[in-house]
Simulated scan of single mutants.
Amino acid sequence: MSVTLAEFPLRPASNREPLLRLLLAGGPRASRRRLLESPGLPPGIELAARMAAVPRAVLVRCEAWLDQAGHHLLAWDDPRYPPLLRQCPDAPLGLFVAGDPDLLWRPALAVVGSRSASAGGRDNARDFSRAFCRAGLVVASGMAAGIDGAAHEAALDSGGTTIAVLGTGPDLPYPRHHARLMERVAAQGAVVSEHPPGTPPRAQNFPGRNRIIAGLALGTLVVEAALRSGALITARLAAEYGREVFAVPGSIHQPQARGCHRLIREGAQLVEQPLEVLEGIAGLAGRLALALEPDVAPEGASAGGTETAPPLSADHQRLWRALGHDPIPMDVLVERTGLTPASLSSMLLAMELDGRVVAEHGRYARRSTAGASAA
């Protein structure tokens, strides 16, 4: 089989097959990522054989899913691929996304915890998630029962945005009773999976799901967790990626609090209210924004966003003029500035973390206290 990726990164819908075969071939990520970064290179014999062995039925299912409105495939070299996740050494080569892929650029906090959560734990997940959404952050979680579901529902009910990362294909809710919740997330946020449509729940897929949650977020909050819990995997990965880890303490008699207590002993920040989490990510948020790419954040902006920045670049000035004090959707900003959604998302992320811009329900506006310094 002769395979070429030279047509990419444009990847018209009529020619997705080489990319799908590469993403679904399995095997070492490094060799496949090298092909994405240098599409003129031919695959080795072993990789070409794995690409040829991808079942036709799987390709047809993927194509049919991607042909539906609101469905996307973000490969490693796609400019829309989330930059914070790209920094992780084991980031997936591709993401199937149902909903708004631009949300993956927005600053997010992961809220995770026990599937068999207590009533108090679910209340805490809701309270923290609502507060994060009011602060303009996206809530990321894993669509599981218990804490995850409560976090997603609270974000949606409060008018905020949320990202659900699945261990199944992007078309299969797990647990099944979250089918309606998954529909709401896709309509108001984004459903994300590295697995192709039709992939059933398999135990080995969920640790990988947890690494994506940790990689997308500035920090991970564990609300409740037993000593053997997937939430602890997410927290450990977040720490390995250099992100902040927070844990809500509980009763010493509550088994679902023991995982949180272990995290606190190991260095996680003990938090009792959402403001403590927001303060905990402030410095990291600024540093990560500046690290995304040299021209994403205005040069000279401090990690906390408190210093006066020098004049903005031409593109930043164009974006600033397009913004007003009334929230504006992304498509209007694209029309006003002539810039791509990916470029706008990166600039808006930096300006939001720097305190210049506020995001509300997918719309952007100047933050009233930032006008003087940004001008």
Rank of each mutant, 00 (worst) to 15 (best):
P310T: 15
A314N: 12
T4E: 13
I45E: 14
G167Y: 03
R126I: 03
C88Y: 00
G219Y: 06
L74H: 02
T308Q: 12
D171K: 07
A282Y: 00
G160Q: 11
P43L: 10
P83Q: 03
P82Y: 01
L95V: 04
G338E: 07
S116I: 08
G136C: 13
G215N: 09
S158R: 09
A282V: 00
V139F: 11
A231C: 13
L263T: 05
S346M: 10
G40Y: 12
V185G: 00
A6C: 12
G142A: 12
P341A: 03
L216V: 15
L333P: 00
A247C: 09
L85P: 02
V277L: 07
A322P: 05
P255C: 05
L288G: 00
F132A: 01
S373C: 03
A365D: 02
Y81L: 06
R34D: 12
S345N: 02
A375P: 00
E240Y: 06
V3D: 01
P55G: 04
A291Q: 15
P173K: 08
A13F: 13
G283Q: 08
E299D: 11
G146T: 06
Q256G: 09
G146Q: 06
T337L: 10
D77A: 11
S345D: 10
Y81M: 08
A257S: 15
A49L: 10
P341R: 01
A226F: 06
H195N: 11
D331F: 07
L216A: 06
A135H: 04
R106I: 01
S251F: 09
I252R: 06
R21F: 04
R32F: 07
A239T: 09
L278E: 10
G70V: 08
L349W: 02
L22I: 13
M51E: 02
R34G: 03
T220G: 02
D67E: 11
I233H: 14
P9V: 08
V296C: 15
A257D: 06
A257F: 08
G27A: 10
N124G: 15
V185M: 07
M351R: 00
P39A: 01
V332R: 13
L47K: 04
T340P: 02
G242P: 15
A144D: 11
A64F: 00
S346H: 07
A225K: 04
V139S: 05
R356L: 15
